[in-house]
């Protein structure tokens, strides 16, 4: 059985476990442990998937560089999750206190290579002269996404910016998360759209799952920032399922890329 199929089975099993566990909501430390261990595990799987994708490319080409950038981003996400877990499980701290914490700096840095990698794929596709679909669909899609993103961010971000109790550093980090999230949303959504343009195009599958995973991670980060600011976020929030699913979809994208290259 190919690694991608095994990862699909693992993903389904883990997400079902994740939902059931959060639904049961066990008392005590168990919730914190599971809530912190799962993202570390999922980010590690994503790291493995993207690393295998990078290794499968030959040396010195722009596709490999794009995947190296994505791998760098995923590695930084993994560091952020590990620091979070260490602080909460080992040091018994609360990561929602004293925002931003060290993990936030890793997560913020991760946005840069991830965005660069996604842009390289989008511009590479454009350079290949393949279609972006009908102009009307493309423009309506872009306007629709811009409207949703703007409304979403406007509502959440304005509440934070108007809050006198939030310090300037924390506000800057919130702005960065929201702006970075938006910047990643556009190329990621574009890659999902591109990968739906041609039927049975196996060559586009890695991009589809990679981009869907990054969209899940972005939605999680934006919502998590807002809820943390609002003091309504705690271990066992169902939003975490999105984050874990996001990492695992990134892993599946990487494994599809590896299998695609090996199939030639």
């Amino acid at each position: 059985m190919p690694a991608s199929q095994r990862t699909w089975i693992f993903t389904i099993a883990l997400i079902i476990f994740n939902i059931l566990f959060f639904w049961i909501k066990p008392e005590g430390k168990a919730m914190t442990i599971v809530s912190d261990i799962l993202p570390i595990l999922c980010a590690l799987v994503a790291l493995g998937g993207t690393a295998l994708a990078v290794r499968s490319f030959g040396t010195g080409n722009r596709a490999r560089l794009a995947w190296i950038l994505l791998l760098t981003g995923v590695t930084l996400f993994f560091c952020a999750e590990t620091i979070n877990g260490f602080l909460e499980i080992i040091l018994n701290g609360d990561v929602n206190d004293g925002f931003p914490i060290l993990a936030d700096y890793f997560r913020m840095t991760a946005y840069i290579p991830v965005l660069a990698g996604l842009l390289m794929l989008v511009f590479g596709y454009k350079k290949s002269r393949f279609s972006f679909g009908s102009k009307r669909n493309f423009i309506f899609g872009l306007l629709g996404l811009s409207l949703i993103a703007f409304t979403f961010v406007h509502q959440l971000l304005l509440s934070i910016l108007r809050d006198a109790d939030t310090g300037n550093l924390a506000k800057s980090v919130y702005i960065y998360y929201f702006a970075g999230g938006l910047l990643i949303t556009f190329p990621a959504a574009l890659l999902v759209y591109i990968s739906s343009l041609y039927k049975k195009a196996w060559i586009l599958s890695p991009w589809r799952y990679l981009a869907m995973g990054l969209l899940c991670l972005t939605i999680f980060t934006i919502e998590h920032s807002y809820l943390s600011w609002n003091n309504t976020y705690g271990s066992g929030n169902f939003l975490e399922v999105f984050r874990n699913l996001g990492y695992l979809l990134v892993a599946i994208g990487g494994l599809y890329q590896k299998e695609l290259i090996e199939s030639v």
Binding site: G58, N61, G124, S128, F130, I203
Partner: peptide, 16 residues
């Protein structure tokens, strides 16, 4: 071949 590089890398694009 040029158009396939972004999907498969240079070596595999050349193989195709």
């Amino acid at each position: 071949q040029e158009s396939l590089i972004i999907f498969l890398g240079s070596d595999k694009a050349q193989a195709i």
